[in-house]
Amino acid sequence: MSTYKRQLSKDLAAHFSDINLTIKETKQGVICTVPVESWLEVAKALRDERDFDFDLCVDVCGVDYLSYGETEWPTDDVTYTGFSRGIRGKGPGRFSWSERRRETVANRFAVVAQLLSLNKNHRLTLKCFAPDEGMLVVPSLIDIWPGVNWFEREAFDLFGIIFQGHPDLRRILTDYGFIGHPFRKDFPLIGNVEVKYDEDKKRVVYQPVSIEPRVLVPKTIRRDSRYVDNTADQENS
């Protein structure tokens, strides 16, 4: 099980030599980043080619890389400020709708698919970044693995990534008529609206949230090298 990774990375690099793939082999698995133009082509080859034979697509999800690597409590210097006093910035869960960030970053949204080959007993993490310019469009994998149907609907619902070619791209987890994409990093944890029963109107109505953002533990980054088996790996990230 654990020896296949080197071979798989080599096969990937050899087979897709004309495509600009980034292959990262870690102790936990192989992660292959594909340019969005080649997303379908690579996926199809991974299913059909005998070297790969990935017959199952286990999972597809979206990732929002906004605020990646940002800390709320700088720990590189020794200061007089204590743990709760020195918090800077509005990390996950610490902002409300009006305080949300407006700026964006390059390579913000990614689509990640987990592939599994039953015959070869291999796993592969396939990843592509949605284009930053224009619409957030990624081709749908539904013709290759029909099972991704709901997973892509979920990524659309929660991140607003549009899957081109998906026959039924509706919201799935959020409420009927929900506005916004709640798993984006600039969407507050407390949400935007809440529902309550209006005694006068005799129906359930929406209103702005009345709760305050409240997260007890700030996000802190510590590069603890003792757990890293490959130090070069960490410097790259």
Partner: peptide, 17 residues
């Protein structure tokens, strides 16, 4: 991302598929 909180967690539930 080297921090004390997960940057992203995706739970793959069998029942969903």
């Amino acid at each position: 991302d080297d921090s004390n909180k997960p940057f992203r967690v995706k739970l793959r539930a069998p029942g969903f598929a």
